[in-house]
């Protein structure tokens, strides 16, 4: 089957999002599990812990969002498809 540049771009976008979501998902799961563990041990420190957790999750999530941006560029602003 002949693959056009558009079809390859769509496949590339899907691969970027799907595989790019794996790593941040695992990382966020570990971070939340560790935070839950810490809150269960010390419930009085839930406030600072959850704030730090949110900032850390935002940092981890950035990687997935970079993949989303790449996928969007491939779909909507592809420089190789006129």
């Amino acid at each position: 089957m002949e693959l056009s540049l558009q079809a390859i771009s769509i496949i590339g976008a899907a691969v970027a999002v799907s595989f790019g979501a794996i790593g941040p998902a695992l990382g966020e799961g570990r971070a939340i599990a560790a935070a839950m563990d810490a809150i269960a041990r010390q419930p009085e420190s839930a406030g600072p812990l959850s704030r730090t957790l949110f900032v850390g999750l935002a940092m981890i999530e950035t990687m997935a969002i970079y993949c989303l941006v790449i996928a969007l560029l491939l779909l909507y602003a592809n420089p190789f498809v006129s």
């Binding site: 935002a58 999530e61 950035t62 969002i65 970079y66 941006v69």
Partner: peptide, 10 residues
């Protein structure tokens, strides 16, 4: 850049 992309992407 990631501050911008995070808000926009979400």
């Amino acid at each position: 850049f990631s501050l911008m992309i995070r808000l926009f992407g979400n």
